[in-house]
């Protein structure tokens, strides 16, 4: 018994506005993208015949295929780095920090930047990475290098460095949640059954946090795949990933080409999410009834 009757018409009508909004603004445009990417002919109109020409043109270009490969590689690398780093930090915060005060302080220090603008945080890396940037000044002052290293700003290294700081939180968040839901007795039970701490970790703790790891990896995957802003801010015009290509085509009014890239991006993401969903049930995170 609650303020809403189970399976009542009221519960149905309450959900309609939100559902309509999401359908109209998220689902319809995404379906539309697929349709537009198949438009042939000379003019941009719904009357166009449907062909795979746009895709054929994309795959005929070696540069684009290479770019797609680079994007996937870059994303996988970031998933690995943020995954390991995020897990270590999550484990430290949940399992190793004993004092509740310190845990809260460190936890807040960890998540607060996540709530500020990603764009501004990406920009904040610019003064760090330049030829006269903080990193180079530091390296030269300790004598690690004589002349400044140009490899940071407008480079893959710089992009990676910034993205690690932006997305580690996403990899760690779900792990923190799963770790804190493991009853301490489970680890103790394993120990009384002669398991050493390392074995306890690999046989008990890690398998139980796996759903969190997978969700974190999905979040990092989706965000890095579509993060054109950081790449544009730090990579300048010298570096691009698949998502920048969408923007590039859009700005030069090649809508159909942009749609093709967007659809390919979407397929990549869909494949990633489907693989992840085979490993773990998303509903286990937080909203289980």
């Amino acid at each position: 018994m609650s303020t809403i009757r189970v399976r009542s018409p009221a519960s149905y009508w309450l959900a309609v506005p939100a559902a309509a909004w999401m359908l109209g603004v998220v689902v319809v445009p995404i379906v539309l993208l697929v349709w537009v990417s198949l438009w042939g002919g000379r003019t941009f109109s719904p009357a166009s015949p449907l062909t795979f020409d746009n895709y054929a043109r994309f795959f005929a270009n070696q540069t684009y295929i290479k770019l797609a490969g680079t994007t996937v590689m870059h994303t996988v690398m970031l998933m690995a780095v943020t995954g390991v780093l995020g897990y270590c930090i999550a484990y430290c915060l949940v399992m190793k920090v004993r004092s509740p005060g310190w845990r809260l302080a460190l936890f807040l220090a960890f998540i607060i930047p996540f709530w500020t603008s990603t764009l501004i945080r990406a920009i904040a890396w610019v003064p760090f990475l330049g030829v006269n940037g903080v990193i180079n000044q530091l390296l030269m002052s300790i004598g690690a290098t004589r002349s400044p290293i140009e490899a940071f700003l407008y480079s893959k290294t710089g992009i990676t460095m910034a993205q690690v700081s932006l997305y580690t939180m996403m990899a760690a968040g779900p792990v923190v949640y799963m770790l804190s839901s493991i009853a301490p007795q489970l680890r103790e039970a394993a120990m009384t059954l002669k398991a050493t701490p390392l074995t306890v970790f690999w046989r008990i703790v890690f398998p139980l946090t796996l759903p969190g790891v997978v969700i974190g990896q999905v979040l990092v995957f989706l965000n890095v795949m579509s993060d054109f802003a950081t790449v544009a801010t730090i990579g300048g015009n010298k570096h691009a990933l698949l998502s920048n290509l969408v923007l590039l085509f859009y700005e030069s009014s090649q809508i159909r080409a942009a749609s093709v890239v967007a659809v390919l991006l979407m397929i990549c993401m869909l494949v990633g999410v489907i693989i992840a969903l085979r490993v773990v049930d998303v509903r286990r995170l937080g909203v289980e009834r």
């Binding site: 609650s2 303020t3 809403i4 009757r5 189970v6 399976r7 009542s8 009221a10 519960s11 149905y12 009508w13 309450l14 959900a15 939100a18 559902a19 999401m22 359908l23 998220v26 689902v27 445009p29 995404i30 993208l33 999905v218 989706l222 965000n223 795949m225 579509s226 054109f228 998502s243 969408v246 923007l247 967007a262 991006l265 979407m266 993401m269 999410v273 998303v282 509903r283 909203v287």
Partner: peptide, 27 residues
Amino acid sequence: QAMRGQFRGNGWFFYLMLLGIMAPGIL
């Protein structure tokens, strides 16, 4: 509040909302 009412299709509704988070802004 609608979800508490467990209306028919609330599972799909949940996934629809999740899609809004998952779908990248650029798309």
